[in-house]
Design a protein around this nucleic acid. Structure first.
Lengths: 346, 346
DNA sequence: CTCTTAACTGGAAACGTTTGCTATAGGCAA
DNA sequence: TTGCCTATAGCAAACGTTTCCAGTTAAGAG
């Protein structure tokens, strides 16, 4: 039995309220509210008097009560598909910065690549009456998607997802362009056996990358080799097992593209198993800006996208939505950045 | 002028309330509340009836109103010193998981290594009436520290910080032990010129690491060389400039310890400038579990601490605090993990 | 000097819940 | 039958704000 607690658990959390400020300043509740919230109908004298008393008492407005009364929480929910992916840390961070600059806080929830969790997350955020939701969905066709996106009570911004039949804003990266550049470059350098490991194609980035990939082959009057494509999972285990298969193929791939964090993890392990070094025996290109790449392996070629710009853009779109503007889609460019790892043995 | 908004901005956000559920089920408000919240004084028939209607209407309780009335927000604030440090992503993640398992959400705010921001963050969280605050402080002696920690209205857990005169819980890593192991190992291998780059010693981890460092020398009957210690900043720029100086010293250091993410960044750049490779011409040890190390450089020796355990432990301590238990300090072990990079040329 | 208006200020009703208290009904013992 | 207790249900008062509406005062116009 905790002894230092007062007899009514409640009273521990007692803080000074607007009522006490009003009493001490000998003015009405409403005047205190107006004085502190910057309402115009307040005399200078009143404002000063109230502010002085508020400071003296250390008054900090109860944001919960403010939210209830005003119907606005100044909070944005951020549903993150997989917080293991370090890219999301970057994304969430830049987004949070932009939101905070506009007076909003962020509640971050993680779905752990699970659709049920994702659904619960949406519900949780709705109950908390967030003013908007930024979401990186697990997939584009979950059974809950209509419920969570279609009749939304609050503006929604999707990250790198295309969902038909709903009117939400979205930030999409133009993966195709960067991949096209990358593959064209490889082809020019003589590569023909180009492997591609990436997530399932029920999400936009995979489909979009694939477009760029295929188009690069078409433009060079070549045919893609289907058995060099491992499309189906974003996780490292999937990538590892498929990379193993790819590396045992004959003829072996001379270049390999890794679509995202998981693929990179899996492939790098598979390469290590076979004692292969990226850029030496095999050309390697990562299709993401992964923060640790910048740090440690400054020789890895990547299809770069400005992750922080995506976060900022998401914040801007959600704020627009709150202002009542129509949803819109914003596209972020990508760019192939050539470094040592895409050389290979050719 | 947005045209799809209804004339009263408010009505856009209108959701079904407990009142409508009560009306449709033809029972009292209070009965709905009790039925849905699992209160015992409710007949089975009533509970079923209410739940059916609630489901039918898609009722989702207003958490804001619940919080206001009950005085409890089921929200924890997480004040993060520097969200650039990838370790914190790991930390926040494991912490959030543990909190969520207990029905809590997390609001994450970033201080960007700035004391003013930090102070504002505490205020923001207090206004939001969070039930507890987990904080990774910028320093241990900011002018606001008393205000924010001393007379706390809510339980507080500090991460790797020791602040005197307040009664908050804390999770501390036993850096000293791991550093002692590491340095002892280096000394055994013949190293004498061991450099140490780390943050300012107005925070616990630096002081604690320094203790381990010094003790290892003492135990070997050697003296530490003060001009090999660069103590003063956690950021990469500080580390870079000091690492340059250290590397130009004569005799040059044969081993170097990097205290944290920033130091690692700076030093690795400095080494690259001089064309030195970790573990080859110079032994190198990182004093942190940095997630990207596991990924890419599996040959870097580190003083490992279980960052996820720290996050979980922080969650547990804050929940204890909410339950009314006394604050306490929890210590997490560290351990030297020897890999190739700590070999050097000796 | 009176009337109108402008500039404030105060009172009170919300916002959507939870919860203490009271009321009702039925069961059981005396 | 009466009285008491138990199990439920309902009423109404909070929680701490914001905001609408109605006053009050003083100034300026006629």
């Amino acid at each position: 039995m905790p002894s230092e607690k007062s007899e009514q658990g409640r009273s521990v959390n007692q803080r000074v309220t607007i009522r006490e400020v009003a009493a001490k300043a000998e003015v009405a509740l409403s005047s205190v509210s107006r004085a502190l919230s910057g309402h115009p109908d307040v005399s200078d004298e009143m404002r000063k008097r109230v502010k002085d008393v508020a400071d003296e008492l250390g008054y900090e407005p109860n944001h919960v009560a403010q939210s209830l009364r005003s119907g606005v929480t100044r909070t944005i929910g951020f549903v993150i598909r997989d917080i293991n992916n370090p890219m999301f840390a970057l994304l969430a961070r830049s987004c949070e910065q932009e939101l905070r600059r506009n007076g909003y806080s962020m509640i971050l929830v993680n779905s752990d690549r699970n659709i049920e969790n994702e659904n619960r997350n949406f519900s949780l955020l709705r109950r908390r009456r967030v003013d908007g939701i930024i979401a990186s969905l697990v997939s584009e066709d979950s059974p809950y998607i209509k419920k969570n996106l279609a009749g939304p009570r609050c503006p929604i911004v999707l990250l790198d997802r295309e969902v038909k039949g709903i009117n939400a804003s979205a930030v999409l990266a133009d993966h195709a362009a960067g991949v096209h550049q990358a593959v064209t470059q490889l082809i020019k350098a003589g590569h023909r056996q180009i492997a591609f490991v990436t997530g399932s194609n029920n999400v936009y980035p995979t489909r979009n990358r694939l477009q760029g990939f295929t188009k690069a082959f078409e433009d060079a009057n070549l045919k893609v080799q289907p058995d060099l494509m491992a499309i189906g999972g974003f996780d490292a285990d999937y990538a590892l097992s498929h990379a193993r298969i790819l590396l045992h193929r004959n003829p072996a791939p001379t270049a390999i593209l890794a679509g995202g964090h998981g693929a990179l993890m899996g492939i790098s392990r598979a390469l290590k198993e076979k004692n292969l070094t990226m850029g030496k025996e095999i050309a390697f290109i990562a299709l993401d800006q992964l923060p640790y790449l910048e740090v440690f392996s400054d020789n890895i070629s990547t299809v770069y996208r400005d992750t922080e710009a995506i976060g900022r853009e998401a914040a801007i779109l959600i704020l627009e939505g709150i202002e009542g503007e129509k949803p819109r889609v914003s596209v972020i460019e990508t760019q192939f950045i050539e470094r040592a790892s895409s050389q290979g043995s050719i």
